[in-house]
Design a protein around this nucleic acid. Structure first.
Length: 420
DNA sequence: TCTGGGGTCCTAGGACCC
DNA sequence: TCTGGGGTCCTAGGACCC
């Protein structure tokens, strides 16, 4: 049983480099929405002390002074580059799980025995690099958790080929010894603290604990992790693209918002966007939640956070239903006198668009056909015309700072790269 | 001054059943 | 005086991931 994890090296930063060869070997950072914090960075930026999630305003000055290059996030572009990489990977083996925008698990069991997996990894790496310009690391191991460890080892040891096969017991033990337990896939900050206080500091320490005891003291999730560290295979490769179970549209605001009059239309924007996403997924939802919160970083200011869930009368994908639920949810959680920093709309309890269900109190004869209105609106919004709902905030559709976005090199005719 | 967004899975505990 | 036992289903919230 063998799995390969293909992981794109500092993916967003690498994307930015593909059409900007002048940025080779230069420090690059990519920022989150609102240019709030650093969410990706190149090796060169790492050397300058940039770390994941650091607030941009804190490192901005010194980074720019050292001739670093900064980008606002350009997810349309990264998504397209990701699809290209995944497409290539799908050509190598029949079973692959696209785990995130920059990672995929490949099932290598379908390959002929005695196949040289290390060479195969190197081959994949060179093809992906040649066809897309994106450098990848490849960790080969008996299961998912260990393939993650292999990727960590490539980083830690700075292995020049960026491919590592972790199969031999001694090698695995050595890698586990060198992995702090917090770097194990599935161990976050909270678990790390608990494990540390129980005297578990490395991945090897964790692997030595009896899995049943772990299950009793922690959870079945961590038990699986322990078993995988020991070489068992617990997590299967899930190659079926499953439907979404939840849709979230949320944003931190560019500036704080205190009045309901200002907040409601912005939350409505999120509701409209969420409904569009839902229709795009060809699903309906039966539950809408709204949340608002003040900034948790402002310790000396009064804090308030609220979440309210509203049940729908039946599954719906109609923006008007979702808007009215949003309003119902927002009113009771809004308290005046607070400076709100973030809000969001969450859609839950999905069912297929094809299923028609009328509510208990609805006459069957009245079961209306789905209105064509939404279809027309989506159709028109896909092109130049924009149709808004009256309750939206159209003046400040995205009160978001994003001043340093690169071109949509591969997804817009108007922004294609030019060759002189 | 300024600190992301979008997801999944699991569990404890409440509500309910016989 | 004394108030069961066993089970299912659902949900909010926690923890984690990238």
């Amino acid at each position: 049983m063998t799995i390969a994890l293909v992981d794109c090296e500092s993916f967003y930063a690498s994307c930015e480099r593909v059409f900007r060869p002048d940025l080779k070997n230069k420090p690059i950072v990519v920022l989150s929405n609102n240019d709030g914090c650093v969410i990706a960075f190149s090796k060169e930026a790492k050397k300058m002390g940039i770390s994941m999630g650091v607030p941009w305003f804190r490192v901005k000055k010194s980074f720019l002074k050292q001739k670093g290059q900064v980008f606002s996030s350009n997810f349309t572009f990264y998504g397209d580059m990701s699809a290209r990489v995944m497409n290539i990977l799908e050509g190598f083996v029949p079973k692959i799980e696209i785990y995130s925008i920059d990672e995929a698990f490949l099932d290598l069991d379908t390959l002929k025995q005695n196949y040289n997996l290390y060479d195969f990894g190197c081959h994949i790496r060179s093809i992906v690099k040649q066809w897309t310009g994106i450098p990848v690391r490849i960790g080969i191991a008996p299961n998912k958790t260990l393939s993650k460890i292999a990727i960590n080892e490539i980083k830690r040891k700075n292995i020049p080929t960026s491919v590592l096969q972790l199969i031999d017991d001694k090698e695995i033990k050595n890698a586990l010894t060198n992995t702090p337990v917090q770097k194990v896939w599935g161990v976050g900050k909270k678990l790390n603290d608990h494990l540390n206080s129980a005297g578990i500091y490395t991945a090897l320490d964790l692997a030595k604990v009896n899995p049943q005891n772990i299950r009793k003291k922690f959870s079945v999730v961590l038990e699986r992790t322990v078993r995988e560290l020991r070489g068992e295979k617990c997590l299967a490769i899930d190659d079926i693209t499953s439907f979404k179970k939840q849709i979230i549209v949320s944003r931190s605001f560019g500036r704080k918002i205190s009045s309901l009059e200002a907040l409601q239309p912005i939350v409505n924007n999120f509701a409209v966007r969420a409904a569009e996403k839902l229709r795009n997924e060809k699903q309906k939802c039966s539950q809408v939640s709204v949340f608002i919160k003040t900034s948790s970083f402002n310790k000396n200011k009064a804090q308030h956070a609220g979440l309210r869930t509203v049940e729908m009368f039946g599954p719906t994908d109609d923006t008007r239903d979702i808007l009215s639920a949003t309003k119902k949810g927002l009113l009771p959680i809004f308290k005046s006198g607070y400076a709100y920093a973030k809000a969001g709309v969450i859609l839950n309890k999905f069912s297929s668009q094809k299923i028609k269900q009328c509510s208990l109190f609805e006459e069957f004869d009245n079961l209306k056909e789905d209105s064509k209105l939404m279809k027309y609106i989506d159709y028109m919004n896909a092109y130049e015309t924009q149709i808004y709902f009256a309750s939206q905030n159209t003046k400040e559709l995205s009160p978001m700072k994003q001043s340093m976005t690169s071109q949509k090199y591969t997804t817009s005719w108007y922004e294609l790269p030019k060759v002189n």
